[in-house]
């Protein structure tokens, strides 16, 4: 914690005095509080609604008058929510693992090896970032259809198994890894693959953590592609499954909210787990001689 914030919490000085001395702090804290309210309200409303009975859903109150677990019981007993949850976990986790592995491998190769056409390959990969997902949906679909990948885990996952963004991010981080580490490992007799895996990868854990979070969250909340590639309700992912609670005329909001509340839990877990590595990575980098 640096200067202004630290002085605000100085035990010897009343916070009113500190605020009066630094009017900028008042503005900063006001903005932060407003931001927090804007962010937290939908979340609170979602959780509140998930405990409401159907007739209470359209009332503005955050806390239900008659809290009930019925919605949770219903989605687990009467729908295939559990299965959708597993589908989401499996596809998101596999895609994340694949992205971390392949993007890091490609990023490392582009950062640390000199070969003819390296720049071309890099720019080609980078240029894929400029194509919006919506444009790719049709070619993906045609591809999935022709290869028989519709209605399969692989069909849901294949477009995301490697990403241009991940390659770019990892390349930038690997470029910051001093060559001497790699040279030292080479002299120590490691194979090029093992140098990457045992020496270079641990040095970029912050980047891997960030990429891991982005990728997992992106796939966890992915809606359009899983909706298109799957017809079989047993293969739905959570967002697609939750959307199916909306009928043509009626949406069971209390069920959607109960499902969405459960759906946020893994994202929290992922964030908490990976964030620790991000912080540790930063500390590590700061101490490096």
């Amino acid at each position: 914690m640096s200067g202004p914030a630290a002085s605000l919490f100085d035990a010897d000085r009343p916070w009113r005095v500190a605020l009066a001395e630094r009017p900028g702090l008042v503005v900063a804290w006001t903005l932060l509080v407003i931001g927090a309210i804007v962010m937290m309200t939908p979340l609170a409303y979602m959780i509140g609604t998930s405990f409401k009975a159907p007739h209470e859903v359209y009332e503005i109150n955050l806390l239900p008058h008659e809290p009930t677990f019925e919605n949770y019981i219903f989605i687990f007993e009467k729908t295939r929510f559990g299965l959708w949850f597993v589908n989401s976990v499996v596809t998101s986790a596999l895609v994340t693992i694949s992205v971390l592995f392949f993007d890091a491998l490609i990023g490392y190769t582009l950062a640390k090896f000199e070969f003819r056409g390296r720049e071309f390959v890099f720019i080609a990969i980078l240029s894929t970032l400029m194509i919006p997902t919506e444009m790719l949906i049709v070619p993906w679909y045609v591809m999935a259809k022709n290869f028989g990948w519709l209605n399969s885990y692989w069909g849901i996952m294949f477009p995301g198994m490697m990403t241009g963004f991940g390659v770019f991010l990892m390349r930038q981080f690997f470029m910051g890894v001093p060559d001497d580490y790699i040279h030292a490992a080479r002299i120590d007799g490691l194979s090029e693959f093992k140098i990457w895996w045992k020496v270079a990868m641990p040095l970029v854990t912050p980047a891997l953590s960030a990429l891991g979070i982005f990728t997992f969250l992106g796939n966890w909340t992915a809606f359009l592609w899983p909706l298109i590639v799957t017809n079989d309700r047993a293969l739905y992912t959570l967002p697609v499954g939750l959307a199916s609670f909306s009928g043509e005329n009626l949406t069971d909001w209390e069920l959607v909210m109960a499902g969405a509340t459960i759906a946020t839990l893994p994202t929290l877990v992922v964030f908490i787990v990976f964030q620790r590595y991000i912080i540790r990575g930063v500390v590590l980098a700061g101490l490096k001689g």
């Binding site: 001093p178 001497d180 580490y181 040279h183 030292a184 490992a185 080479r186 002299i187 120590d188 007799g189 490691l190 093992k194 020496v199 641990p202 040095l203 590590l284 101490l287 490096k288 001689g289």
Partner: peptide, 30 residues
Amino acid sequence: KDRDIAMVFQNYALYPHMSVFKNIAFGLLA
């Protein structure tokens, strides 16, 4: 690795995620 040499680098190139023991033992472990 086949030249039977060992090198000490300017910035030491110690692997920050390994203990001193593992750093020293790294070549032998490999």
